[in-house]
Amino acid sequence: MDVFMKGLSKAKEGVVAAAEKTKQGVAEAAGKTKEGVLYVGSKTKEGVVHGVATVAEKTKEQVTNVGGAVVTGVTAVAQKTVEGAGSIAAATGFVKKDQLGKNEEGAPQEGILEDMPVDPDNEAYEMPSEEGYQDYEPEA
């Protein structure tokens, strides 16, 4: 019985440690998101679009440190934060509304985080759909 109880105690310690790591990862992701939003706020009209992409990228980098179902929630929060940063930029006159959601080359930025393969159960990952990809044929 002692062996059984000791095993359960060790398992509990492992769960607590994993929860603490997840909590730490979420806190880091939130900190990076805040950094990115402050970065966007300090940019001029020309830099705002690039700044919004930076927020998304920093958040995406930190999301990889967070495991399990938390990833889905962090990704949703990050996307809403990026959308909010863009709205703030438009409201303050840093950028025109028609410039939001495009990178410096004018290509749409939507789907940055949505296409990231995420499995809350950590069982399997699927690649994003290939609808947006084109076949590449090298020139002879």
Rank of each mutant, 00 (worst) to 15 (best):
83 E>F: 12
59 T>L: 04
13 E>M: 00
60 K>R: 14
39 Y>G: 02
15 V>E: 00
80 K>F: 13
55 V>K: 01
135 D>H: 09
74 V>L: 13
68 G>Q: 05
66 V>F: 12
103 N>Y: 06
32 K>T: 06
19 A>N: 02
19 A>I: 15
128 P>I: 07
24 Q>H: 12
24 Q>W: 11
119 D>F: 07
112 I>N: 07
46 E>M: 12
132 G>R: 05
115 D>F: 05
11 A>I: 15
44 T>I: 06
73 G>V: 10
109 Q>Y: 11
57 E>R: 06
37 V>I: 15
45 K>R: 09
80 K>C: 08
129 S>G: 06
98 D>C: 12
130 E>M: 07
108 P>E: 10
123 E>V: 10
108 P>D: 08
114 E>D: 15
12 K>L: 06
137 E>G: 12
25 G>K: 13
85 A>Q: 03
65 N>Q: 06
77 V>E: 01
3 V>T: 01
17 A>H: 01
136 Y>A: 09
140 A>C: 15
19 A>S: 01
125 Y>C: 15
57 E>G: 09
58 K>Y: 14
138 P>W: 08
63 V>F: 06
50 H>D: 03
39 Y>F: 14
75 T>N: 11
87 S>R: 08
134 Q>A: 12
47 G>A: 15
26 V>W: 08
70 V>R: 01
76 A>H: 11
29 A>R: 05
31 G>W: 11
106 G>M: 11
108 P>V: 13
107 A>R: 12
69 A>S: 07
88 I>G: 03
94 F>N: 05
62 Q>K: 09
77 V>I: 08
103 N>K: 01
116 M>I: 05
96 K>F: 12
106 G>T: 11
38 L>G: 08
124 A>K: 10
45 K>P: 00
107 A>Y: 10
30 A>R: 04
71 V>G: 02
56 A>V: 13
131 E>L: 07
31 G>D: 00
86 G>E: 14
41 G>H: 03
87 S>C: 10
66 V>N: 02
99 Q>E: 08
35 E>C: 15
42 S>H: 00
38 L>T: 06
46 E>C: 13
37 V>D: 00
70 V>Y: 06
136 Y>C: 12
52 V>R: 01
4 F>L: 10
101 G>S: 09
67 G>Y: 15
51 G>M: 02
61 E>V: 03
102 K>M: 06
32 K>I: 10
12 K>W: 15
135 D>A: 02
140 A>H: 06
31 G>Y: 09
34 K>A: 11
51 G>E: 02
25 G>F: 12
26 V>L: 08
35 E>N: 14
136 Y>M: 13
64 T>M: 15
108 P>N: 10
87 S>M: 12
103 N>W: 06
20 E>S: 06
48 V>K: 01
128 P>F: 11
94 F>K: 01
70 V>T: 03
83 E>M: 07
72 T>L: 15
22 T>Y: 11
73 G>T: 15
33 T>Y: 07
15 V>A: 02
105 E>Q: 08
122 N>R: 13
16 V>T: 09
22 T>M: 15
58 K>T: 13
120 P>T: 03
82 V>G: 05
101 G>K: 10
99 Q>Y: 12
54 T>Y: 11
36 G>I: 15
91 A>K: 15
107 A>P: 07
40 V>L: 07
82 V>Y: 07
121 D>L: 11
135 D>C: 12
118 V>Q: 15
88 I>L: 09
12 K>D: 00
67 G>W: 11
30 A>M: 09
40 V>I: 01
41 G>L: 09
30 A>G: 03
45 K>G: 08
43 K>Y: 15
72 T>P: 00
59 T>Y: 01
72 T>W: 04
5 M>Y: 03
113 L>K: 13
63 V>W: 13
110 E>Q: 08
74 V>D: 02
57 E>N: 10
129 S>E: 12
83 E>T: 13
28 E>G: 09
33 T>F: 03
55 V>E: 00
14 G>F: 11
81 T>C: 13
40 V>E: 00
109 Q>G: 02
114 E>I: 10
41 G>N: 01
66 V>M: 10
1 M>C: 00
88 I>W: 06
110 E>H: 05
113 L>P: 05
33 T>E: 00
106 G>D: 03
49 V>Y: 04
132 G>Q: 11
131 E>D: 13
127 M>T: 15
33 T>V: 14
11 A>S: 01
117 P>V: 12
126 E>W: 07
47 G>K: 08
74 V>P: 03
41 G>R: 10
34 K>H: 06
125 Y>E: 13
3 V>R: 14
68 G>K: 11
38 L>V: 10
3 V>S: 05
84 G>H: 14
46 E>D: 12
77 V>S: 02
99 Q>I: 11
21 K>W: 06
3 V>H: 15
136 Y>V: 11
113 L>R: 11
8 L>E: 00
94 F>Y: 14
39 Y>S: 09
9 S>F: 15
36 G>Q: 04
96 K>D: 08
8 L>H: 00
23 K>I: 04
44 T>L: 05
13 E>D: 00
96 K>R: 06
35 E>G: 14
46 E>S: 07
1 M>T: 00
69 A>N: 07
106 G>H: 11
2 D>G: 01
91 A>E: 15
63 V>T: 04
124 A>T: 10
89 A>C: 09
58 K>L: 05
108 P>Y: 09
117 P>W: 04
81 T>D: 02
37 V>C: 12
61 E>L: 02
30 A>K: 05
35 E>R: 05
125 Y>H: 09
68 G>E: 03
33 T>M: 07
63 V>D: 02
112 I>D: 11
106 G>K: 09
6 K>N: 08
83 E>W: 08
54 T>N: 11
70 V>L: 15
97 K>W: 13
94 F>W: 05
133 Y>K: 03
31 G>V: 06
79 Q>M: 04
67 G>V: 15
105 E>C: 09
23 K>F: 11
26 V>R: 00
79 Q>W: 14
5 M>F: 09
93 G>N: 08
66 V>G: 02
102 K>F: 00
8 L>A: 02
38 L>S: 01
116 M>W: 05
38 L>W: 10
92 T>M: 15
35 E>P: 02
73 G>D: 05
46 E>V: 09
23 K>A: 09
38 L>Y: 12
81 T>F: 02
137 E>V: 13
95 V>H: 11
71 V>F: 15
105 E>D: 12
72 T>R: 10
139 E>K: 11
21 K>Y: 08
119 D>S: 02
47 G>L: 09
68 G>A: 00
64 T>H: 05
17 A>Q: 08
70 V>N: 01
65 N>R: 05
15 V>C: 03
127 M>G: 12
134 Q>S: 09
21 K>A: 07
16 V>D: 01
30 A>Q: 01
139 E>V: 08
16 V>A: 10
126 E>R: 03
25 G>I: 15
61 E>R: 02
138 P>L: 11
1 M>N: 00
81 T>I: 10
52 V>K: 00
63 V>K: 00
2 D>P: 02
10 K>D: 02
29 A>E: 00
88 I>Y: 14
74 V>N: 01
57 E>S: 02
59 T>C: 15
96 K>W: 15
98 D>Q: 07
75 T>L: 14
134 Q>H: 04
107 A>F: 13
65 N>W: 15
23 K>P: 01
2 D>L: 11
65 N>K: 08
78 A>S: 06
127 M>C: 02
138 P>G: 07
27 A>V: 10
46 E>L: 00
62 Q>C: 11
51 G>T: 10
131 E>T: 05
124 A>P: 14
78 A>H: 11
116 M>P: 09
57 E>H: 06
106 G>C: 14
61 E>M: 07
87 S>A: 06
104 E>L: 11
25 G>M: 14
78 A>K: 11
92 T>F: 15
122 N>A: 09
107 A>S: 04
69 A>W: 15
133 Y>S: 04
90 A>K: 12
57 E>Q: 12
49 V>N: 07
53 A>H: 03
78 A>E: 02
16 V>N: 08
123 E>W: 01
8 L>C: 02
17 A>E: 06
1 M>I: 00
90 A>W: 15
16 V>S: 04
73 G>M: 03
43 K>Q: 06
4 F>M: 05
8 L>G: 00
88 I>H: 05
8 L>Q: 00
121 D>V: 09
63 V>A: 13
8 L>T: 00
97 K>A: 15
11 A>K: 00
9 S>G: 05
45 K>M: 08
59 T>D: 00
84 G>V: 04
125 Y>R: 04
106 G>Q: 15
123 E>A: 04
107 A>I: 09
